[in-house]
Amino acid sequence: MTDQAYNFAYLDEQTKRMIRRAILKGVAVPGYQVPFASREMPMPYGWGTGGVQVTAACLVPEDRLKVIDQGADDTTNAVSIRKFFQRTAGVAVTEATTAASIIQTRHRIPETPLHEGQILVYQVPIPEPLRFLEPRETETRKMHELEEYGLMHVKLYEDIARHGTIATSYAYPVKVEGRYVMDPSPIPKFDNPKLSDSPALQLFGAGREQRIYALPPYTQVVSLDFDDHPFDPSKAAHDCDLCGAAASYLDEVIIDDQGGRMFVCSDTDFCRGRREAGHVGALGVPLAEGGM
């Protein structure tokens, strides 16, 4: 009964139209933050209200949706948003990166390479990369307009002066097509290289800040750095303990109070895929035996 009370994908058609216009403008001007009239969503700010609105505006009944939170398909944020769209749009859902047509993500880009036709929707808390350096929104807009991005390097300079290396490890600023400096949302800087030249369409939605921006497929995205301190997409120096992957981004998990810990892939779908294919990490057992 209640299921019938919702419009397809929750938002009314006029709102979707407004959001689609903002998305189109964002795609036309890669990296530019397009203002949009963000709606109240049935979830608190910070839980992905921007991402949900972008996803809702893009969804069609034939879509297959995947939602990830910190790389995982089964954490609170991912489960609740997936259920939300199952209920309000009735679309098919999946946990497999390759099978999804729309992927809404928080803080990660899937390890499995994306392909053409896919849409990756990011949840963005603060879209303005210059915010913590220049609090005036009027001034940051002017700086974007006039391409005055020296201040962004001041942040990196401060990192090196204080820590000896660029210590920014997530939300690492990037320059899009040699023009706009963009906040890639709080993805680890390990994921930054995947932003560039991706065959998938990447959309960024910030609900509270009422901004949408986008990277069309095959857009050049460069992480900012210094000549003598080049960008380094670092990760934990370890292999995944479950699937043995050497080149995937890892979570460190404390497993007892004796200081025991294990490193596991943050991308659960990628990890399961590898284990199903027979890869076994240092602490893992083959999946067929049904153990961790």
Binding site: E148, L151, H153, V154, Y157, A161, F226, D228, H229
Partner: peptide
Amino acid sequence: GGNVGERLMAVGARHYG
């Protein structure tokens, strides 16, 4: 140091040292 360096970076200096 960052305050002094800002103008240099604003005109395109990209070498930390």
